[in-house]
Design a protein around this nucleic acid. Structure first.
Lengths: 234, 234
DNA sequence: CGTCAAAATTGGACTAGACCACTCCTTAGA
DNA sequence: TCTAAGGAGTGGTCTAGTCCAATTTTGACG
């Protein structure tokens, strides 16, 4: 028996997924009570499995009638992804080049954005690459309290992974603000682009499980190689 | 008694919310079993209520220990919002001006994006206003099959509301793709902007409960008055 | 045949309770 | 005084079952 034991609803959803994929759109799937008996689980578990399948658009459910195979979508899985995940999806190898790292002892002009980022603070300026092409320019701020000897670490990989593995600081959620901008000449030079091209500016606040702000960052991302795909639900 | 009867977990969450707001960060809230007894509901319902509070960052939960009041965030509620909702949040009055509406009998060059939008199809070109300022330019395509006499309708309000109320076609989810662009001169003229300003281009596929594509749209939104705020979760 | 009210069937919401996994505190022992 | 084992308490997962709400089917009646 494998060490990792998957939870029932999740596993059940994975079992049902290929069956559903083979069926025609709008074809009914077995009733919740039938599935419960067939797999020897409770109806609650079946319902959670169906909820998972509903979420990513594999099926749809009609009260009093049943659940049915959903017609295929042009774009299968639309989600907000991290830099590394997005790179994977696009089949590119992520990399980071450190432009500048230093410790800020104290600063004036600290707005509300800084709540939770105590001083002294590390300032990390990096270029992010996909297959050796510069994709975005990024400045991150992390309190030295949280990652004491950050300067000794290898910063060419994922900052999130480093924080998690070396300092036990997992960033589980982040508030982001996205603005369209013209990339200015200074940033264009750093990214080896011609100036005046459209891009995104992203402000991010990263939080750990306890809801404490651990990261603050500002990103300029080129627009010709990047777009955001996501699904909105009512 | 009000006609609308709220579901227990939702109602319980609303009852707990003000209590939590008054407490200090990291202060423990009562245990699940205590809450269940106090409100005369099952532990399952309590857990669903706490899950709601966890989602919008009011509390955080630690396995084996308890649930605690989360520290306040700079930005309270970050979500992806519809045009009308976004206007409300910003305290602006939404309006739409119809530039052009007509029926397309048949067209060449129909890409995969059009899957589900059968012909003949209505093409609706509109300007979207917030407090009399043009905010975005929008082209929507809707199959005439779905909304037969669309030309007779008032198109200056929300298209979604119209589809729902007059044709029983509720759009419950949408896939969107967001690209940063320089607003070209033709669109700038329509929106009464100086050309070359940064903006968003949004492609949207809207789906009904049955997972059928009902709407296809392309939007150009000015960047100086608009940004996207959202929360990413692990 | 068609109509329409009643019955059966299906999903939706909730309960009470069992058991597991993790955390934290007590306490016996060195 | 310190340490490690153990137990109590917490959240995490799942079950079996009840009742409600929406839909579909049935069948009596015209």
């Amino acid at each position: 028996m494998a060490k990792e034991e998957f939870l029932k609803p999740y596993r059940l959803a994975e079992i049902l997924r290929p069956e559903i994929a083979e069926s025609d759109p709008h074809e009914p799937i077995p009733t919740e009570r039938q599935l419960a008996e067939r797999f020897g689980v409770s109806r609650v578990s079946v319902r959670q499995a169906l909820a998972l399948l509903n979420e990513d658009g594999a099926i749809y459910t009609v009260h009093g009638s049943g659940s049915f195979v959903a017609p295929p979508r042009v774009t299968k899985q639309m989600k907000l992804l991290s830099f590394s995940q997005e790179m994977e999806v696009r089949g590119l190898k992520p990399k980071a080049k450190v432009l500048n790292v230093h410790l800020i002892e104290s600063s004036t002009n600290r707005s509300d954005d800084w709540a939770g980022i105590t001083e002294p603070t590390y300032r990390i300026e990096r270029l992010r690459y996909g297959n050796d092409d510069p994709m975005s320019w990024e400045v991150s701020y992390i309190a030295s309290e949280i990652a004491p000897d950050l300067l000794k670490q290898d910063l060419t990989g994922s900052l999130y992974t480093l924080l998690k593995n070396n300092y036990g600081q997992e960033i589980v959620s982040a508030d982001e603000q996205l603005t369209p901008v013209l990339i200015d000449s200074a940033t264009s030079t750093k990214m080896k682009l011609t100036p005046g091209k459209p891009g995104f500016e992203i402000h991010r606040h990263g939080f750990n499980v306890r809801g404490q702000q651990v990261e603050l960052s500002r990103t300029i991302r080129r627009g010709d190689r990047w777009d955001f795909k996501y699904t909105v639900r009512a």
